[in-house]
């Protein structure tokens, strides 16, 4: 990825022009990130941020079905006409858990946990599965060969292969036959300073924010009350944490 200097020059010039518009766009809809460090569209991501989510399952009605529906609507997955139930895409699902001994029960939404050391990215032969500098784990479908090794490696069954040709995808969420996909933490939103769709739909039960910023709401909440990882034994240091599980 070589960057020619004239592109950089262009970017600097462009930033000036865009800055005003960007601010307007960011602030206007009232969905702006409450945390410091919210990103402008023109800004390059960096490892100064690590985006994460804290999900309070006790506060999510219906096991989080609402956030699943919001994700589906945002990205358009799950309605593949030809695929059977085992083949349909699932970026997020609600899982019911009942501890055998104590009979304690709870529901939680399970999606890509945006691991710091993501097994999917480790095993991907082409590097299509990768972790962005700001901690979001994505698939670069332009170089994904559809080998599904990442799906074998994921401890959360968070990834799906698209089993058929798709049409009329969402403009902000490209998806296509033969490539693997999963939760993107709504990068198209957070890159322009908006909240992920599930967070918006969660009625405050999901906090989104910067795990690296000790003053952010999510860091404060995690510090005060803790947050569990699914399969913490694997030591993946996930970006998605849970309370109430």
């Amino acid at each position: 990825m070589s960057k020619s200097s004239n592109i950089d020059a262009y970017r600097r010039k462009f930033l000036l022009g865009v800055a005003g518009t960007a601010t307007a766009v960011t602030v206007a809809p009232g969905l702006l990130l409450r945390q410091a460090g919210a990103k402008a569209p023109s800004e390059e991501i960096s490892d100064k941020n690590r985006w994460g989510m804290l999900i309070d399952v006790d506060r999510l009605p219906n096991g989080g079905q609402g956030v699943v529906d919001a994700c589906k609507k945002e990205h358009g997955w799950g309605d593949e006409a030809h695929s059977n139930d085992q083949q349909k895409a699932h970026w997020v699902r609600t899982v019911h858990v009942k501890e055998k001994l104590t009979e304690h029960e709870f529901d939680l939404p399970v999606m890509c946990q945006h691991c710091e050391t993501a097994p999917c990215a480790d095993v991907c032969p082409t590097g299509a599965s990768f972790r962005r500098e700001d901690g979001v784990v994505l698939v670069d479908k332009h170089i994904c060969i559809g080998c599904r090794y990442c799906m074998m490696a994921c401890p959360y069954k968070a990834r799906s292969l698209v089993h058929e040709a798709l049409f009329d995808q969402k403009a902000h969420s490209p998806r296509g036959k033969g490539t693997v996909e999963s939760c993107t933490m709504c990068v198209h939103r957070i890159d322009v300073g908006r909240l992920p769709a599930c967070v918006e739909a969660s009625n405050g039960a999901i906090i989104f924010g910067d795990l690296n910023d000790k003053n952010s709401e999510i860091s404060q909440a995690l510090k005060a009350r803790g947050g569990k990882q699914i399969r913490a034994d694997l030591g993946l240091n996930t970006g998605v944490r849970y309370q109430g599980i």
Binding site: M1, L15, A22, A40, P41, F130, D134, L138, H142, D191
Partner: peptide
């Protein structure tokens, strides 16, 4: 494409 994919720049 690469700028957006890897650097999160969405103003090009």
């Amino acid at each position: 494409r690469d700028e957006t994919m890897y650097e999160g720049i969405r103003s090009s």
